[in-house]
Design a binder for these strands. Sequence first.
DNA 1: ATGAAAGCGCTAACAC
DNA 2: GTGTTAGCGCTTTCAT
Lengths: 334, 334
Amino acid sequence: MADMTRKKPTSYDVAKLAGVHRSAVSRAFSDGGSISAETKEKVMKAAKTLEYRVNFFARGLQKQNSGLVGIVASRLDTPYRAKQVKLASHELIENGYTPILLTVDKSDDVSGRMSSLLNYNISGMIVTSDTPPAKIIEECIQYNIPVVLINRDPSITGTDRIQLNIEDAGQLAFDMLCKAGATKFGVLMPQTQTYTVQGRAKIFAQKCRDAGFPITIIETQGQSYAAGTDATQDVYEKLDDIDGIFCTTDLMAFGLLDGLRNQYNIAVPGQLKILGFDDVDQASWGAYNLSTINQDIQQSAIAAVDLMMKRLETPLKPLETRSILLTPIHRGTT
Amino acid sequence: MADMTRKKPTSYDVAKLAGVHRSAVSRAFSDGGSISAETKEKVMKAAKTLEYRVNFFARGLQKQNSGLVGIVASRLDTPYRAKQVKLASHELIENGYTPILLTVDKSDDVSGRMSSLLNYNISGMIVTSDTPPAKIIEECIQYNIPVVLINRDPSITGTDRIQLNIEDAGQLAFDMLCKAGATKFGVLMPQTQTYTVQGRAKIFAQKCRDAGFPITIIETQGQSYAAGTDATQDVYEKLDDIDGIFCTTDLMAFGLLDGLRNQYNIAVPGQLKILGFDDVDQASWGAYNLSTINQDIQQSAIAAVDLMMKRLETPLKPLETRSILLTPIHRGTT
DNA sequence: ATGAAAGCGCTAACAC
DNA sequence: GTGTTAGCGCTTTCAT
């Protein structure tokens, strides 16, 4: 393999070729630079032949803005989260930013990883992981780095946020199961993890009580497919008290459905109505055909980036929280 | 909201507080810096109280290495790809790199986006998207930026690669269906997209012919769940000629299974044996219980990062291709 | 082992 | 509108 290595051209190389000064090159590649059309054209032509690219490290050193935005996400291999990150990434790129992906899962050093983002002078941070460390977020705020939290615990303050309204979510779930004819309710409630998942479970339970219906709370380990299958026996044994169950994530609903089908012979929705949450792709798959509640994930990704950009423009504007649009999806399990 | 903004401390601030020269700070934070233990400690202490972090933009300008690595990925909302990106990201971070996520899907300007990575002086690039533009990759190579291609068309040359052996894959699929008792074969073959998907379909067909069995090729639009359901009627109509079908992705297998269950009454595996490929999470879910072929995605992520690092160390070493480990997974559909 | 000084590639304030 | 100049914060020779 012959060494065809070449060095990257600098603005100086371009200037020399175009017969102008380096600063003219800079102006040609900057937005508000006062430069004549013909000079700019000369520069651009030279830049093209040399395949010149502005060195963002040099630019970022000079400006106090890197164009890099951190996306902090856990459980990226989960359908909902994968789509969320995809759309956030897409939206950032469309707006001229470059996303840094920070995957953090249990046993990872979340704090250390998020801290390392600050080495890169990031322009902003979008957090959709479990339990982001408050300390790092505070530090970002001090440095005027906008942080947007998606569906995170409101105990972390000082940031803009995108959040589903757990009140609406719980109410909507109750309404859907009610309309489907349920009168004895159950809910799958994870013991840990996401604030909004537990939140909607609690509100749902409250709505049931408020309306004078019995509600059985079944605690789960996590919010995954396995959590749903693990809860199957529990649900089965309490079937006298439950004819409509709210699974607070689609994944748990899939697990429960499969568990019931596999081990017992329960008619869904005849004997038991099942409602999921999130409306991930699999919910519409024939095997599940799951009634659920859609979170408008695209809207929320767009809103997150928008919030970040607005805060960049106006650092001192009042904190803002935007709600994620919720839509009931009636399919075959209610 | 009071303005609590502070400026980031620089190495100069730390030096002042520690009573040393800036270069001592640099040495304290560099790996091979010759510095006395006590000076280093002084520096570290000062750095800690000021919450100093090395500015990677300044460092990256000086060294010719940014620590940033581009992950170029399409269809991130797909189970296989999501896991792949998650693991690659994790592996990069573990090795001290910072992943930039470049999502590219149809209608996106792939070339422009990948080109923008070069603005950041990236240390390397891991590509797992469809149809990466050869031009950009060539340019990376010229600048000595290691590029690792995962399961991409071999017509793009000059890079290290991670790839499943399509020969093995086709053979394995044939063997599995054979052992399950199939004698009349079918295969779902996407008309576009991934090289390895089409590749294993073609090899599979060839193996069937070589062994003297009839093979029916059914072309699909894409390789998704919908592609599988769309193929259902086609498969149904050809059921006289097929008793074992190789769906070249799990997603297509799910679609086909659901399509068959929903519209027809076909016994699987009695009447028709179905084999998927990838072993995504959903394949083990109760509703599908799909026999498939596992690609060791963790091994491939680790190998990709390893290959990149090796190339960084030894830019001129011969090009290398590593194979992805394949494992037959026997479940309920064969 | 440490301080001094040059310079990575760029932008922006300043002259003209 | 364009050239000049002074840094952005760091690493890295080179002296000492």
